[in-house]
Design a protein around this nucleic acid. Structure first.
Lengths: 132, 132
DNA sequence: ATATTTATTTAGACAATGTCAAGACTAAAT
DNA sequence: ATTTAGTCTTGACATTGTCTAAATAAATAT
């Protein structure tokens, strides 16, 4: 990941210590953290950061297109640093979420859906991750 | 939909007025209601029914396989009276959820996912529903 | 029928997620 | 120095969902 400050500047967001702490964690994370996960990790770098600021920053990053947001598991939205199109696999035992590269799956038949204009889609799979 | 009482009996659930009220609404609904939606509609038939009982009943119906449960939109789980496999389309403007028949789409490539044992999957699409 | 388990419901407490408004703080710009 | 704009914090608030203890209803046995 590039420098957090330069990333924020590039998207016209003033780089404050709070935002830097959020960005440094969430944009490098591969674990699909919840807002609360981000809050507790951001507090390691910036102990005073508040819950409201973390939510504000996450929503800002999503609006600007730097960050993905998914409602895959119940209880809380999760954030996804991978902004390329991809599918998701959820481990039913652990709840862990894995990204599945877009070209690993092919979805056919969307053109037959006469009543719907599809902006985006993804496959969500659930099951068990095989141990290596 | 068949008689609510006989459905409950068939699944070894004692038919109480509260459960009947819940079942009559949620199993005939095509709108993918939240638990709170179910609560307010069930109260029309059974005004004293409590929130806890609605949650208990919904969870029971899901456990018994009478009802589907989906985490598609943020904020609350939704319940799905369609227990056959199907995909979902979410209207980005209204939030309405539509069932897409299973055989309208084909998902290819799952066998290539070496690290994952897939128990179930579905396609989730977002976009705009075309007016008739 | 009556007493005694057993199952079910209720009300309220509780924790977690997420939003919001008011005031405090910071950094520029005038 | 003072205003101004932007940002942050605190705490309140609404909502979702679970849990427990007590009340109620139903089923069984006597």
């Amino acid at each position: 990941m590039k420098n957090a400050i330069s990333i924020l500047r590039r998207y016209d967001i003033q780089p404050t210590p709070q935002r830097i702490a959020v960005v440094e964690y969430v944009l490098k994370s591969k674990t699909h953290p919840s807002a609360d996960d981000v809050l507790s990790h951001a507090r390691k770098k910036c102990p005073t950061v508040s819950r409201a600021t973390v939510y504000n920053t996450l929503n800002l990053l999503v609006e600007k297109g730097l960050l993905g947001m998914q409602t895959i598991k119940e209880g809380a939205v999760i954030f996804d640093s991978n902004i390329k199109k991809h599918h998701h696999f959820v481990d039913s035992d652990t709840g862990d979420i894995y990204d599945i590269p877009w070209d690993q799956l092919e979805v056919k038949g969307r053109e037959k859906l006469k009543d719907f204009e599809v902006f985006e889609f993804q496959v969500i799979m659930r099951g068990r991750r095989k141990k290596k």
